[in-house]
Design a binder for these strands. Structure first.
Length: 762
DNA sequence: ATAGGGTTAG
């Protein structure tokens, strides 16, 4: 993953730091003024010339400014400063190159310019050159022997410039060396330099080193307290943030607005509503309100803590609102499950920036409304607002859930093309997207290319391998993870245990299960027990599975009994199946899945009377099945089908193809199996008609008419695939020579030339 | 007439 230059960044309509550019001053007479100056012969006066040039420079007319300058040190410094302000590094570099004399001031400005342009390598080189130019002048105690020329070498301005905007990677790579330079030049007692160093360590995740620096500081001003609190926020150590806030008072350091913003942000993250309310009270008592930044932070805090009434009241009472205030309430509603209200507010926003758009997309993702998330992304593009890595994470999450591989791949290419940073979160989202689209090889490729991995990276990859049927690889990866001393969490363990189940590695699974507590101190939850039951049941060790359920420290849930029932069905243990089904029905009386599985088992064992009775009972009780729904992505569009769907624009063609497909499948030996479908005696015909219209069959028929020969068809289902569709897919993959990938609620089915990767166990 | 440290989404 290479990083492109951020040359486009400056041209983005939304400034990354939301700095509002001041409205341009009226400039009707600039040219006239210039002519006037030339006409009256003032142009030789250096003071007037500089003023003129400043005028151009201040208005961002750098080219004019440069053209009208007779090189003179002060003038050049002024234009260079203007270049930095206008973020025009190119002009700055040219000017710098033409300078006869370059004082430390200029070097510092150039460092600033490069850092702002994300060119840290060049910025560091410049800092070293400062050192190099002075190497012969014997720095001691931060002073250079040559006082006439280079003054004091790298000074207290140099390091803040250089350290500002350091990314985590830069901080890790250069941090210690820079710290050594600071010490060498005797700048470590400077408050600005110390705060900048502190921030750098916090950014690199070395919050303990930052704290050490903080503790050792001879005097700690409010900015260093703020930097420290910000560091704890960054490391998700919110209690420590609040602790520092309290400790400030003990040392009589007055908090600033920034302090309050930081602490309120910590309250928001740790859902500390009480703490947040106290700060709100303090702000009111201290007459610190109204203040836009503080009000925004309060809205954010109340929104995140779920106190929407307070957030909304604050928002309504505000005298002036900016885009951040609007975004904060939109996020508040979205996170409280009121996504439609969030959308209504979003539509009323007077101005939307990248963060508001991303918040809306993310809101839809959280609400599970993934197609709408994609739609908002398209609207964002139509509004010419540039996405960033945060937007892309949300987009990729939506793609993952929808199985929208084409859009996901487009997103990846888009990021490369537009130089959007591929950070850990983006990498993790890509791994997840590829895994959930059944493209585990691509997921592995991303995983290999990530030079930094966190526990989410490992977990995503392990689960991805597991669910796609690469159990052994997943287990290998888990060992590697433990070796690299990344601590697994409970989600990681679900991934590994699933892997053991799919690979049929019972003993390995048992061992891993016990290592959970013994090695990592993680108490298994009900889902882990479900994995263990599944693992044992799959291997045919039904008694052990039941024993596990009976010895569980918590009440088994439907997934646990479901796993046992599934195992009983495959291994034909009717007695235990009845037991499992009884429990399952108790837990989910309105879901037909358990009844239907039991029906299918009765039918297989030729207990037709029981099967019939069971069906009658379902009918009488009016038990409904969760409606099945299938998604299939074609040409960047996600198409949705429910059973018997006729809403698709190409519905006529789809049903013609479906009919033809069923005929061809039958010719190849496919026999419909209605055992998992609800029907009364003598209603075989109707049942057949119903299974022919299952959503995944419609999705595949649509896939066949809308894509070229040989293209894989990927379907995402919300519920478990039924036995008949599973069978039909096997035949279809063979006679149409297509790879068909169906992701159901629990796992992947990769159908290739007549067989399925799940080996008929699911 | 010229620079500096702390501020919000995954």
């Amino acid at each position: 993953m290479h990083h492109h230059g951020r040359a486009q960044a400056g041209a983005r309509p939304n400034d990354p730091f939301r700095r509002r550019l001041r409205p341009p001053p009226r400039q009707p007479s600039r040219k006239q003024l210039h002519c006037h100056v030339v006409k009256f012969g003032f142009s030789s006066d250096i003071y007037i010339q500089n003023t003129l040039m400043n005028m151009y420079a201040a208005r961002g007319c750098l080219t004019s400014a440069c053209q009208n300058v007779t090189p003179n040190e002060i003038a050049l410094v002024n234009v260079l400063t203007a270049c930095a302000r206008a973020r025009d590094l190119e002009t700055g570099k040219r000017l710098f190159g033409e300078m006869p004399e370059r004082n430390l001031f200029c070097w510092n400005i150039m460092i600033k310019g490069h850092v702002e342009d994300s060119d840290y390598k060049e910025a560091l080189r410049l800092e070293i050159i400062v050192r190099d130019r002075c190497r012969f002048h014997h720095f001691r105690d931060g002073c250079c022997s040559c006082k006439d020329f280079c003054g004091v070498g790298p000074n207290s301005h140099t390091f803040p410039f250089l350290l500002k905007g350091f990314t985590r990677d830069d901080a890790v790579a250069y941090g210690d060396e820079l710290h050594a330079h600071v010490l060498k030049f005797g700048l470590s007692s400077n408050a600005h330099v110390r705060s900048a160093l502190l921030r750098m360590y916090a950014v690199s995740g070395a919050v303990d080193t930052a704290r050490e620096l903080f503790e050792k500081s001879p005097e700690r001003d409010v900015v260093s307290w703020n930097a420290m609190i910000s560091g704890y926020n960054r490391s998700n150590m919110f209690e420590e943030s609040c602790g520092l806030f309290t400790a400030m008072a003990g040392e009589s350091v007055m908090p600033t607005a920034t302090t309050y913003v930081l602490v309120l942000s910590a309250c928001a993250k740790m859902k500390g509503l009480e703490c947040g309310r106290q700060i709100h009270g303090r702000l009111m008592n201290g007459n610190l309100l109204p203040d836009l930044r503080l009000e925004n932070a309060l809205i954010e805090m109340y929104g995140q803590c779920g106190d929407l009434d307070s957030a909304w009241r604050l928002f309504q009472d505000m005298q002036t609102r900016d885009v951040i205030s609007w975004t904060a309430v939109v996020v508040g509603f979205a996170k409280s499950g009121e996504i439609d209200r969030a959308r209504a507010l979003f539509d009323r926003m007077p101005e939307r920036d990248r963060i508001s758009w991303t918040a809306m997309i993310d809101g839809y993702v959280r609400a599970g409304r993934f197609k709408e998330a994609l739609h908002v992304f398209r609207e964002m593009q139509a509004a010419a607002v540039w996405p960033d890595e945060f937007t892309m994470v949300s987009l990729l999450t939506a793609c993952a859930q929808l199985g929208a591989l084409e859009i996901g791949e487009w997103a990846r290419a888009y990021m490369e093309r537009n130089g959007i940073k591929m950070d850990i979160a983006v990498g993790n989202a890509l791994i997840d997207m590829y895994s959930k689209c059944g493209q585990v090889d691509n997921a592995v490729e991303i995983f290999r290319r990530m030079h930094r991995k966190d526990k989410f990276t490992w977990t995503a990859m392990i689960s991805g391998l597991a669910v796609n049927g690469h159990g052994e690889d997943a287990i290998d990866l888990f060992s590697q993870m433990v070796e690299t001393s990344v601590r697994p969490d409970e989600v990681t363990y679900i991934g590994v245990l699933t892997a053991c189940g799919h690979a049929g590695l019972v003993d390995e699974g048992r061992k891993i299960f016990s290592s959970m507590i013994a090695v990592h101190g993680i108490m298994p939850n009900v889902t882990h027990y479900g994995c263990l039951v599944d693992l044992l049941g799959r291997a045919g060790r039904l008694e052990e599975a039941l024993e596990t359920i009976n010895n569980m420290p918590m009440k088994p849930n439907s997934a646990v009994w479901g796993a046992l029932l599934g195992a009983c069905r495959v291994h034909g243990n009717l007695e235990m199946a009845e037991l499992a089904a009884k429990h399952l029905v108790e837990l989910q009386p309105h879901d037909s899945a358990a009844y239907l599985l039991l029906c299918s088992l009765y039918a297989n064992r030729n207990k037709l009377e029981e099967a019939h009775k069971m069906r009658e009972m379902i009918m009488v009780k009016g038990i409904k099945k969760e409606p099945g729904c299938s998604l299939v992505e074609m040409n960047g569009e996600v198409h949705e089908f429910v059973a018997g769907d006729r809403s698709h624009p190409r519905t006529g063609e789809i049903y013609t193809k479906l009919e033809e497909m069923i005929k061809e499948l039958k010719r190849a030996g496919y026999v419909p199996d209605t055992s998992e479908i609800l029907h009364g005696a003598g209603e075989e015909e109707a049942a057949n008609a119903a299974i022919y219209q299952h959503s995944e069959k419609l999705a595949v028929a649509f896939g066949l008419i809308s894509s070229r020969y040989g293209v894989a068809i990927r379907v995402v289902k919300n519920v478990r695939i039924c036995i008949d569709c599973h069978n039909a897919m096997k035949f279809a993959s063979k006679i149409y020579r297509r790879e068909i990938v169906v992701r159901d609620r629990r796992r992947f089915h990769h159908f290739r030339s007549g067989s399925c990767s799940c080996k008929d166990y699911w």
